[in-house]
Structures are given as structure tokens and as C-alpha cells.
């Protein structure tokens, strides 16, 4: 950890004007600072800001303060009732201690678990742009199969953001100049391209203040299914967040987002188009799975993710539609 300046912000305005990296729970940033993967000159502690409430919205949705801990969000009765997929995703992540510290805003910005990103002796374009990518040609079992680039094949490691992507969340921010903006989660994250070090659209000094969830889809089933190497405290090999409604024997609504596949919580409209209007069943499910893995590319150790996510999606759709094994 390099020496750094530290300031505590009492207001959002002071925070965004503070000119430093924000820290709240610190569950990811502090680890990375100890390894000097992250070396901020200044930390602005936002943990005292008044952003720790979950509030009703007029449209029947919720506004979640950026500092709401993962544990509290998962346990909120409104979340459990209306957004079960979110509660389940949160509880599938990390450990009890980490969920107590980790915040909603921070969790959206969790950085990849790529082994080579974590090791300063390895080449990593995300950590050190232009240095190369040791994961390509190295051990890449946990890496991405969709949306990769020649520069980076890292995945976003989160669970909560995957559920939020399926829920069409909006991320509310305040910029250094005081301007506020609302960014749909689908526009928030970036694919690695030639700049894998830039993971989202936040500008320097821009602070996530809230996450808005729209009104829940009526009569929908929710599911979060996470496949991992051990029963707890492991990042997703693949995960599926699903919100699906069936009306009159046909799929009326389908929102499906995926973890462990890409540099961001993945969502592909073609997957949902293959489902909406169809009768639930193997034909529709396989069409959706085919659409998902179209263009998927493995890098050796992670080739298994292609059949794995295909199978996991089909099984998830069975659960989401109440269709027993076809």
C-alpha cells in the first residue's frame, strides 16, 4: 500500500469535489491497494454520507442508496417480495462478513478476479495498459467467452449487478461539477476493447449515489442460479439472473442476464426475443441458449463455460416457466 491522503466527506457535494478515489466498505479496493494493483493518491471516505436508505418510488419501484450494505439489501422485505432475484444474487456472493461491509455502489464497481490482474509481476492491460495479457495463453479457466478483445478476457465477478441488469436498474450519479445523471445499467459498463482499464462510463470524480429499480414485472418468476467451484465463497463460473412471466401458456416477459461470461453483466436481446411469445418448452429454451452462445469463444481452460451456460440457462428456464424436464 502506497501512502495516500485521506479525507472524510460529510456531503455528496464535498465528496465529488474531493478529487480522490471513493472508499466505502473497502472490501475490494483495500485488498488491491495492499498489492499495489491500485495506488490512489487520495481516498475520499464516503461511508458517512446519507445514502444508506431504501425508499419507495412513485412508480412502485425502489431507490436504493449507494451505501446500503449488501446484507441489508438482501434482507429488505420489499426486495425479497418484489425483486427476489436481487436478494438471491446478493446472498450468493462473497461471505457474511463481506456482505456486511460491501455497499451497493461499491459492489457495482468490483474489479475482476483475473489472476494476472492481481499479480503485479504479470502482464495485464487492465492493470497496466499496453503491458499485454497473460491470461490469453495462460490459465484462463475463469475468463470470459463473450465480448472479449485481443487486449483483455477478464470477467466482471459480481452477482448483484447481474440481477440488477435483469431488473433494468438505473444508476444515479453526481458528477464533480454537481450535475446529476441517470444511466441505465445496460449503458453503464463497457466491453474491454482497446481500453480494458476503463470499465464503465463514470467520469473522474463522479459518484454513484443511488440505484433505481423500476416497478416489478407482474406475475413473474425470479431466479438466480450460480454455478461455482465450491458451495460458497467462490466467484461464478457462470450465473443466470432471470425474470420471466408466462401468460396464457406463452412467455410474456423474459429478462435474462448472465455472470461469469463477459467483462460486464451480460444481456443479449436475442436471447429474450427467442422466448417472448413462445410456448415454454425445449424448443424455445434451446433457441434462447443458441442465441446466447452464438459467437462465444473459449480460450482453452474456459471452453467448458459454453456448454455449461447453455445447460444452466435451459434448466433455469424450466424453473422460471414451471416447465418440467421436457
Amino acid at each position: 500500500m502506497k501512502p495516500f491522503d485521506y479525507a472524510r466527506a460529510d456531503t455528496v457535494e464535498a465528496a465529488v469535489a474531493g478529487g480522490g478515489r471513493f472508499i466505502a466498505g473497502g472490501t475490494n479496493l483495500l485488498d488491491l491497494m495492499k498489492l499495489q494493483v491500485e495506488t490512489p493518491e487520495k481516498l475520499v471516505d464516503i461511508s458517512r454520507l446519507d445514502l444508506n436508505r431504501i425508499e419507495e418510488r412513485d412508480d412502485g419501484g425502489l431507490t436504493i442508496g449507494a451505501l446500503v450494505p449488501n446484507s441489508d439489501l438482501a434482507a429488505d422485505p420489499r426486495v425479497i417480495e418484489r425483486y427476489e432475484v436481487l436478494s438471491r444474487a446478493l446472498l450468493a456472493g462473497a461471505s457474511g462478513q463481506l456482505r456486511n461491509k460491501a455497499t451497493t455502489g461499491g459492489n457495482l464497481l468490483q474489479r475482476t478476479r483475473c489472476y494476472y490482474f492481481y499479480d503485479t509481476a504479470a502482464a495485464c492491460n487492465k492493470r497496466e495498459p499496453g503491458s499485454g495479457c497473460d491470461a490469453i495463453g495462460g490459465f484462463n479457466r475463469i475468463h470470459a467467452i463473450l465480448g472479449t478483445s485481443e487486449q483483455c478476457i477478464a470477467t466482471h465477478p459480481g452477482d448483484m449487478p447481474v440481477a440488477m441488469r435483469a431488473l433494468d436498474a438505473t444508476i444515479v450519479t453526481q458528477k464533480a461539477d454537481g450535475d446529476k445523471r441517470r444511466v441505465p445499467i445496460g449503458d453503464f459498463y463497457r466491453l474491454p476493447g482497446d481500453t480494458p482499464q476503463i470499465e464503465n462510463v463514470l467520469e473522474p470524480g463522479e459518484l454513484i449515489t443511488h440505484v433505481e429499480l423500476p416497478a416489478p414485472v407482474a406475475n413473474a418468476r425470479h431466479l438466480y442460479r450460480k454455478v461455482r467451484d465450491r458451495a460458497s465463497y467462490a466467484f461464478a463460473l457462470v450465473s443466470v439472473a432471470g425474470v420471466v412471466a408466462v401468460e396464457d401458456g406463452r412467455i410474456a416477459h423474459a429478462a435474462l442476464a448472465f455472470g461469469g461470461l463477459a467483462h460486464l453483466p451480460w444481456r443479449n436481446p436475442a436471447v429474450e426475443q427467442a422466448l417472448v411469445g413462445q410456448q415454454p418448452g425445449t424448443a424455445a429454451f434451446e433457441a434462447a441458449a443458441d442465441a446466447l452462445v452464438e459467437g462465444a469463444r473459449g480460450f482453452g481452460h474456459n471452453n467448458f463455460k459454453i456448454p455449461l451456460v447453455r445447460r444452466t440457462l435451459i434448466a433455469s428456464l424450466r424453473d422460471l416457466t414451471g416447465e418440467a424436464s421436457a
Partner: peptide
């Protein structure tokens, strides 16, 4: 414990990625 075949280095050098069984296992 995974060794990178290109240089023998240990790839998963922490408790997050060297998977010991946890209580749930």
C-alpha cells in the same frame, strides 16, 4: 495449485482462488 506452464509460476496465490473447502462444502 495451478502453475502457469509458460513460467511455472503459481497462478492462484490467494485464498479466494486456491479453493479450500468451506463450511458449506
Amino acid at each position: 495449485l495451478v502453475h502457469d506452464p509458460r513460467n511455472g509460476k503459481i497462478v492462484n496465490r490467494d485464498m479466494a482462488e486456491y479453493h479450500l473447502p468451506v463450511n458449506a462444502d
